[in-house]
Amino acid sequence: MSFLNYLVSGLSLGSVYAIIALGYTMVYGIAKMLNFAHGDVIMVGAYICFFAFTRYGLNPFISVILAMLVCTCLGIVIEKLAYKPLRQAPSLAVLITAIGVSYLLQNLALLFWSSNPKVFNPIIPNKSINLGGLTVSYITLLTILVCVAIMIVLTTFINKTKLGKAMRAVSEDKGAAQLMGIDVNTTISVTFAIGSGLAAIAGVLLCSAYPNLTPTTGSMPGIKAFTAAVFGGIGSIPGAFLGGLLLGIIENLAKAYISTQISDAIVFGVLIIVLLVKPAGLLGKPTREKV
């Protein structure tokens, strides 16, 4: 394989990370919390799509929509039941709860769907296309295109709609937003809904490329996407995209040219170096403490 091939498949993996990282970064930006259950929502999305598409033979498009709907509802329910009661609580309590929700989802999946790996059929034909000497599989191409589409739609949504403006306002000052008539709870719910819907897409794309589905499928990509969000500057949407893409490319190149075993170590090593140089991440704004 050529360097270009590694680069494109890295871009594809990075696209999945980027889509997941969006969920982390949006929730962090608005609710100021780290939702560590986010990775497991990916897994739930992949299972829903697996059952709809592989087991019951539904149309792939409908299966993905179904997975998105279930995950969107799941995201809203998790927020309502687990995080909303802790709105005034110290952030450590929320963090522990998030880790608890993560384990809850994994164990529920274990209970319902067993630990046997499911073989996930890719939602589009497993074929490749030749682009000027470069062989790219359909799913790689689809993943990159979906990521670009999400980036465009989401950026427009955040910048050009009233809900997007409300989200940015809540992210800056909850109190002032409320006094301007913005319902903070609804805004946070919408954020969770969007993040979780995107997680379902990420789950389907991830499992189409790596078809091994287990209850812990979401945890490693979840942690890597979280890393990507921090890498790009947590709270920043363009940062999540940049961080995700770079992380995927670094991981793939490390696997190709250095070692498969220590590729993860290299990825996290890069994160440490970036944070030493730019503590707020690549696109993050350094926060000034008011004295």
């Binding site: 009233k162 409300a166 940015r168 306002a169 800056e172 008539g181």
Partner: peptide, 13 residues
């Protein structure tokens, strides 16, 4: 809302 534009601040309300 410092990061929003002047018009956006007003529209938020």
């Amino acid at each position: 809302f410092d990061k929003l534009t002047v018009a956006e601040n007003v529209m938020t309300a």
